[in-house]
Amino acid sequence: MFQLLDPAGRLRNGAKPPLDDEFVLEGLRWMMLSRAIDARATGLQRQGRLGVFSPVLGQEASVVGSAMALDPTRDWLVPQYRELPAMLMHGYPLHKHLLSKDGVVMTYFGEGASSEGDFHEACNLAGVVKAPVVFFLQNNNWAISTPRQLQSSAGSLAERAAGYGMPGVQVDGNDLLAVNQVSREAVARARAGEGPSLIEAITYRMSFHNTTDNPSKYQDPAELEAARARDPIRRVQAYLKGRGMWDEKREQEFEQAISEEIEAAIVKAQKAPLPNRSQIFDNVFAELTPRQAAQRRELLGEG
């Protein structure tokens, strides 16, 4: 497993800092924002003010480190549901990139999803046509209650890449620097026309699958404790502290700014107009079908 920072935030084997401190600080800000959103959104869900929510908790380095390897002006991010900071970072630009000829796609999924047939079909096709794709597998050990060892008997999920004719690498998913480095390498490879890569980020889901879940039914508390010792945010903070870039004052400033940003977003969301019932038929088809038009008239009591 590739690692640059040990869990205490020290560079391994006296390696030189691979990234600008400002870049790492930016990454840390996204990670802290993510964690603060998790807490606030979960609270809103418990109050009945938000629907089902999936927290990122524990996987911040994995998501942020990989997303920061993309060029937002030309690359595509195709997330699932546990990549909120990546989406906030890049937005969902879609058609902005249509004319980009050297864009790269980074797609996210978990070790559970990698048992599905479509994962294998997609890797296989990408290998055949040398598609510029980075398959970013977040192995967080849990697919709701199903543990990693029930998904596959392969010792390493990254090794599956060989079967698709692409490189695969296992990285410490709680190490922002290491995740960013392997992601940059995979993006560069894709951009150079050399084809897809598979990255397996070893991380740990430190919270529930989503707000409908109750991990106490299946998770060993000792395992969660061990994961806390590998907390990705504390690791970056310790690293930056060692470089004279982080202290309590700065932490408070970050937290204050993040809190204000989140509260402003909640206020904005609350002010957004509620959808009108008549809109439910919009955008199923490019144009309303006669049946939908009739259903809409019924719904609106127009006979």
Partner: peptide, 11 residues
């Protein structure tokens, strides 16, 4: 394409 309908349609 490879014989894989799901990714043919997915792609």
């Amino acid at each position: 394409a490879p014989i894989a309908e799901e990714v043919i349609v997915g792609s």
